[in-house]
Design a protein around this nucleic acid. Structure first.
Lengths: 166, 166
DNA sequence: AAATTATTGGTCAGAATTGACTATTCAAGA
DNA sequence: TCTTGAATAGTCAATTCTGACCAATAATTT
């Protein structure tokens, strides 16, 4: 549902074609949303079927024609509704990497510590790239900033786990 | 991949049937993993095909027979491998509720504030239920504790967002 | 003890998602 | 200018996931 909101919200600012949408999301939102190209097209198609977006074919230069998506009035309504719904609710996040921690006591601490240190490094790298996401006007910036706050606390927590193993 | 690890890790401690596995995950891990019943069966089937678990049919009382899953030696190896892999890597989390925040400046602050306060309440409720997850021996406890740390920082961050709107 | 409801245990068709692939254009170097 | 590689734009078969349903037993009510 939040992906629908995302696509509508972006199309609302300007019409775009599928590839462009996907690029934008990769660039600015890869930290919080992971939307594959093929999924983007699939969702756009569904939105079109529901009448929230309309398609048109455009030609730029002598490149092959592209499908450009515009938001419709119904789509705008839908956006307003989804946005309010999203802002008012909490969607629990799934921590895939916690599964390993749940079995931490199944391997000796001497072996676990270096593994967790590798994890720590991977997180630190994520944090660095989060900082280098190009700045963007408006509240999108919030999302980028959130990621750094999140990663910083995650790293601190992991440190405490590693510490308790030593 | 982490779901595979999870199932193998649980079956390693004791053989179980699908329903039991799902129940356990619901009870103790709903905060970090969301594994539907039908998905559990699907994955168990796949694990069986790959030879990581074996099935047997058991009858208790005069209830209908149940499919009980045991881990195999190959499955044990696989578990060891997946566990190390998981511990050493960082799996970025997806924050579905950040999408709304990205469009925060598309509605007036007077309207956004009460919505975000509703969200805050939902998060506080999550935090409360996280605290009431029955305690469990071993490192599973870590996972439960992580959730409270996570939610606390998320709530604090949201507060700062609400504050900046006022 | 009959009727109703909850729990257990599971299946399956359909929806969502993805990786792998295609094909065109553009840029840059040999 | 020819070739190689990257960027653009998208499709599609196969995989993965889920909601909705089914059916049996146990518990609870009347």
């Amino acid at each position: 549902m939040e992906r629908e909101l995302l696509l509508l919200g972006l199309l609302r600012r300007q019409k775009m074609h599928g590839y462009e949408l996907h690029e934008f999301i990769e660039q600015y939102m890869r930290t919080c949303i992971d939307l594959k190209k093929s999924t983007a097209y699939y969702l756009l198609d569904k939105l079109a079927q529901k009448g929230y977006v309309s398609q048109s074919v455009e030609q730029s230069g002598n490149r092959p024609p592209r499908h450009v998506y515009h938001i419709t009035p119904t789509g705008e309504e839908r956006f307003q509704e989804l946005l309010r719904q999203n802002l008012a609710s909490h969607i629990p996040v799934k921590f895939g990497d916690l599964v390993g921690l749940a079995f931490l006591d199944d391997i000796p601490a001497e072996e676990a510590i270096p593994l967790l240190q590798k994890r720590r490094e991977a997180m630190a790298r994520s944090l660095e790239t989060a900082v280098t996401v190009p700045p963007h006007p408006g509240s999108l910036q919030l999302v980028i900033q959130h990621q750094t706050v999140h990663l910083e606390t995650e790293i601190a927590w992991l440190d405490s786990v590693i510490n308790s193993l030593e």
